[in-house]
Nucleic acid binder design. Structure first.
Length: 198
DNA sequence: GCGACGATTATCT
DNA sequence: GATAATCGTCGCA
């Protein structure tokens, strides 16, 4: 069952990030269903978090969708090559988001394999924020601001994992965020092989 | 208008 | 382990 819109409106982005672990991210880009279990996420807060693109109230064309009401997709281009997928959370005018960093493939393996131009299926298929976006066909030009209640990108509900199944660490690639780089806001499923980095 | 750089990854050594 | 790839955004003039 598709996650209800209320889920995305919760005020604590860290709790939402943890709750998203184990749920299923689905897309029907090009008419083909591709999906995977969310195994790794990171939380970004619009307030008091220098690692967030919308930090310090920065409001531009790029960050605008993060200020929208939760339940939308924030997709952006990184290093000019990688499309990174985020889930916008919290109420209107509060710029919180959860970056999905890795998934465990479920549906549409062949399509994902083709999009990734992989001969074999291994963890490089969907473990990593740029990799999973490519596998699911997510592109910033096409999916920036997409409604997660729609039928092109959505998240299927699943039971919330227990604390003992979740590993917590600092976020990846945010050294520029000074003291906020130390925030323990990265979460992944313990003993799961579909993780970008240990 | 211009220049520096990034929430990364594939492909080298 | 190091590095190239590659382009939209942001900050400043």
């Amino acid at each position: 069952m598709k996650l209800k819109s209320d889920f995305y409106l919760q005020s604590n982005v860290v709790l939402i990030a943890k709750a998203l672990l184990g749920k299923t991210l689905c897309t029907t880009v090009d008419g083909v269903l591709t999906s995977g279990k969310i195994t790794e996420v990171e939380a970004y807060s619009g307030t008091n978090d220098k690692a967030c693109h919308a930090n310090n109230g920065l409001r531009t064309k790029r960050t605008e969708v993060m200020y929208a009401q939760g339940g939308k997709a924030y997709v952006y281009l990184c290093y000019g090559i990688h499309h990174l997928f985020n889930v916008v959370t919290n109420v209107h005018d509060t710029a919180d988001a959860v970056l999905v960093r890795a998934i465990e493939p479920i549906d549409g393996l062949e399509t994902m394999q083709k999009r990734r131009r992989k001969i074999e299926i291994n963890k490089t298929l969907t473990a990593g924020p740029g990799a999973l976006s490519q596998a699911l066909g997510i592109q910033y030009q096409q999916h920036y601001g997409a409604d997660l209640q729609g039928d092109e990108i959505w998240i299927e509900d699943a039971p919330v994992l227990t604390e003992s199944e979740i590993v917590t660490s600092t976020r990846i690639g945010v050294a520029y965020a000074e003291e906020d780089a130390l925030k323990p806001w990265r979460f992944y499923i313990k003993d799961n092989k579909w993780i970008s980095k240990k």
